[in-house]
Design a protein around this nucleic acid. Structure first.
Lengths: 228, 228
DNA sequence: CGCCGTCTTGACCTAGTTCAAGGGAGGTGG
DNA sequence: CCACCTCCCTTGAACTAGGTCAAGACGGCG
């Protein structure tokens, strides 16, 4: 798992990051070319099936990518946090919808601008695609959840967020329990109960429902015995 | 030497995936460059974490991509059937292992050969990456299963196989119930029961355990009410 | 023919869902 | 500044889908 830049969630020192060269230039290009846009909570960024003319980079807040099943069940395909790029891995049309889970700032870039860049620099092209491929790896990794228990899924979620959000052990969740449940394939009640039980066993602490402190990482890693 | 390589169901067209132009040339390139190799049942094609120096194209049989969790649970990430290409969407190392689920013929191509081709033809490069991106879409689509019931998952599996295997409505499953269970995140017993119940309701027919006839597709589509 | 891996079926059990009720926390208007 | 309202979150109790355990049955192969 590539280490992500330590962005304080709103100060966005965007662009380059020490550990991760490949994402650097694509991200940097987006910083140069992108037009910043604010989205209020639950505002749609793009819809499933729409032409994928733009690529997005999250600056602050968070974005959920989701699909709605025929019978109304909602599935959250991915969360994008500050620094993440949304919409690289598509063919012509978006294959999911995207909304801000909270008031968010997003850079909007014409895909064609990136394609032009890629055409002129094979190095850039390579990095562009590498970045897109990473989406595959993440999705495939998430597929492991099919076999995990509710507790393991919630723990996996917390550890994932712990890696991606700055601030050592304290996370501010930018999404509702419903979002989390739809991401993990559980119900909000189960998510709530699992968090409560983790708090009871002193593995985490929840000063507020959206604020979670990872008190005992080794224990968390042990609970998520799905190696990944 | 019994060239049993030509197993009945193996004779159909390789290369072009139903109505798919873009994959044509990558697949065609692999046909030109590839060295055919036989793998017996359960033989390893590559292992997780190994350098990804080769790309593979399935000619006959089937390949399972899988990971094993720390506690021994196995998760099947994907099945690759004749015509499918394995190992495009990777960075330097394979992120899962691959085995033949049954005696299989596979074309082996050096990745560098494809990279060279891509460097000389931007059209080829584009198709190469498009193909890789498709892996993402498939994985993301499969993520929907997190929310599906056992019956819906089994139905989704049958419909997926129905699309990908030739022969209108009759499928020869090239994998065990355990493989299917690990693919769907269920147990073999549940898979078996769901198939039995589909047969009882005359939606499918099972002359043998590995041979399934889709008797009533509209009903199947209805059962899988997860739009996708 | 007998063995072994695979598949099915039954009976029981449990993790997680469903249904229902109530408790914050933040936002808005008076 | 308070009152109210509306989401959001939590907790309990009952229920059920699917897992687990156990016992065959089928089918391919030596």
């Amino acid at each position: 798992m590539p280490t992500r830049a330590a962005l304080a969630s709103d100060t966005f020192r965007v662009g380059d990051q020490a550990g991760d060269v490949a994402s650097g230039t694509v991200a940097a290009a987006m910083d140069r070319l992108g037009v910043p846009k604010m989205f209020s909570r639950n505002a749609e960024i793009f819809g499933e099936g729409e032409p994928a003319g733009y690529v997005y980079k999250v600056i602050s807040g968070a974005v959920r990518a989701y699909k709605v099943l025929a019978d109304g069940r909602r599935h959250v395909v991915a969360f994008y946090l500050p620094g993440d790029i949304v919409g690289l891995a598509v063919e012509d049309l978006h294959n999911f919808s995207a909304e801000a889970t909270t008031r968010s700032k997003v850079l909007v870039v014409k895909r064609s601008a990136l394609v032009t860049l890629a055409a002129s620099s094979s190095k850039f092209a390579r990095q562009y695609w590498t970045q897109a491929i990473r989406e595959t790896l993440r999705a495939q990794r998430r597929l492991l959840m099919l076999k995990l228990t509710a507790q393991e899924r919630v723990v996996a979620f917390l550890l994932e967020m712990g890696e991606r959000i700055p601030g050592k052990n304290s996370l501010e969740l930018k999404m509702t329990r419903q979002d989390i449940a739809d991401y993990l394939g559980l119900t909000i009640e189960t998510v709530s109960r699992m968090l409560a039980s983790l708090e009871n066993t002193a593995v985490i602490e929840m000063p507020m429902s959206r604020r979670i402190v990872l008190r005992n990482r080794p224990a968390l890693n042990r609970l998520q015995h799905a190696g990944c």
